[in-house]
């Protein structure tokens, strides 16, 4: 599988491959992974130079927005490091991290970005050698995947941007925010929540929110018809239409002067906001 990617990438690229060095960002929690990376240094375990580390207090701070926005900015890979489960300095932080990373991976998949570009690892403060192994392995994996297409492919950039927007919708944030507690403590009525069912709900929500975000992203650039959107996004037109009805109700998209008999839609720019 990896081999296939590799050759495909070789065929497409114009510039010589030697020039390209993966750009990898790592978000590490202060208490375990960052300390593990420190120990790795103290013990002089070597690893490739591609990774750039950002310290956060807890891996739970790493919201899908942080990750997807950095992917949108062109990162080839992102590593998230936290304490081992049940060892979190903040009790349950990394359980939430785990759920958030699942959402990030779902959205990356929707956007057509290889899930292998995002890695979550538990590295304790005593696992210096593990840290070097993780970084080496991850860097090699990214090298095989080749450069992220976000920088060169506008559609890809739009998709990652849509994934980022989707990750910030109330629905997905609330679902994923509550996921760990729902599964570990049950719902507000004290009933057990079926994990598979909840996963199903989140899967559907992820796809819906991504598609809506992508419609807005594409119709922001130029007004598009339902059929055009369906073709570009490879989504059945009836589904696109349902999304558009909802987006119109929420005043996020407007119908513009129809070209002939086909109405086109344009995203309503929100004044003042970024």
């Amino acid at each position: 599988m990896a081999q296939k990617h590799h050759t495909a990438h070789h065929g497409k690229k114009h510039e010589p491959d030697k020039e390209w060095e993966p750009k990898i960002v790592g978000f590490l929690c202060n208490w375990c992974s960052y300390a593990g990376a420190d120990l790795c240094g103290v013990s002089r375990f070597q690893y490739p130079t591609n990774i750039r580390l950002v310290r956060v207090m807890c891996s739970t701070r790493v919201s899908p927005h942080l990750v997807l926005d950095v992917f949108e900015a062109g990162a080839d890979g992102i590593l998230i490091g936290g304490c081992h489960l049940n060892d979190c300095h903040y009790m349950t932080g990394n359980f939430h991290t785990e759920k958030r990373v699942e959402l990030m991976k779902r959205l990356l998949k929707e956007a057509g970005i290889d899930e292998g570009r995002l890695r979550l690892e538990w590295v304790s403060a005593s696992e210096g050698e593990k840290f070097s192994k993780v970084v080496t392995e991850f860097t090699e994996g990214i090298q095989k995947l080749g450069p992220s297409k976000v920088r060169s492919d506008d559609m890809m950039k739009a998709k990652v941007s849509a994934a980022d927007d989707a990750s910030q919708t109330f629905r997905l944030k609330a679902l994923v925010g509550k996921e760990f507690n729902l599964l570990s403590k049950g719902n507000a009525y004290g009933e057990e929540v079926d994990a598979e069912k909840l996963t199903g709900v989140i899967d559907v929500a992820t796809q819906d929110e991504f598609e809506r975000a992508l419609i807005l992203e594409l119709a922001r650039i130029r007004p598009m018809s339902v059929k055009q959107l369906g073709m570009v996004m490879d989504v059945p037109t009836d589904k696109i239409l349902r999304h558009i009805v909802l987006l119109r109700q929420n005043s996020k998209i407007a119908m513009e002067h129809p070209e002939g008999f086909t109405p086109v839609y344009k995203t309503i720019a929100i004044g003042g906001e970024q």
């Binding site: 956060v56 701070r61 942080l66 926005d69 932080g93 939430h96 109330f170 629905r171």
Partner: peptide, 24 residues
């Protein structure tokens, strides 16, 4: 820890010293 900030569905919670702006 920042859990609430990463969770807040309305994006209403900011972590002091570890804001989205600073980290991004």
């Amino acid at each position: 820890c920042g859990c609430c900030g990463a969770t807040c569905p309305e994006g209403a919670i900011t972590m002091t010293h570890y804001t989205d702006q600073q980290l991004l």
